[in-house]
């Protein structure tokens, strides 16, 4: 039994599903457990799984580090930007009530936006961290005399 083949097939099946699940957690967070942070982690797990099975190089090709870096920054910017937007709408920082005519709706929009920011940053950071750690291993391995750290 060639397990790696099985693994690859299963991963191909699973990863899209995991991504869907992540989206579900992301946007269902208002009604059930979960939210941006958890969704971000699940998203990251999907990519980590991909990297584990298809190798780091392939994973990097699918998700270039530059994008990841941009994602990290964008997430924070989306969060803070929501707050700034409310400021421009005449409210205080992060006063989502201003985002719509109705305070409750405004709050809802605000939370969605903010959670999206959280998810984006968390996913990007987690994947980045894994890529970096795993990438370091490859660098070390190619240089066997590094083992003793001299």
């Amino acid at each position: 039994m060639r397990n790696h083949l099985v693994l690859r097939v299963i991963a191909k099946l699973l990863i899209p599903f995991i991504l869907v699940f992540a989206l579900y957690v992301q946007f269902h967070g208002d009604y059930g457990p979960g939210g941006g942070f958890q969704a971000g982690v699940i998203f990251a797990v999907a990519f980590i799984l991909y990297a584990l099975i298809y190798g780091l190089e392939n994973a990097r090709r699918v998700m270039p580090p530059t994008w990841l870096r941009a994602g990290t920054a964008l997430g924070v910017l989306i969060y803070a930007g929501t707050g700034i937007a409310t400021m421009f709408l005449g409210g205080k920082f992060l006063d989502y009530s201003r985002l719509a005519h109705d305070a409750s709706h405004g709050q809802h929009y605000g939370i969605i936006a903010v959670e999206f920011g959280v998810g984006l940053t968390v996913a990007s950071v987690m994947v980045t961290i894994f890529f970096v750690f795993a990438g370091r291993q490859r660098l070390t391995d190619e240089d066997p005399d590094e083992e003793n750290g001299a």
């Binding site: 208002d30 457990p33 709050q107 903010v114």
Partner: peptide, 13 residues
């Protein structure tokens, strides 16, 4: 806020 998950509400708002 009107969102059932109070943790999310508290957390995000």
């Amino acid at each position: 806020v009107g969102i059932p998950n109070i943790v999310t509400t508290t957390l995000a708002s």
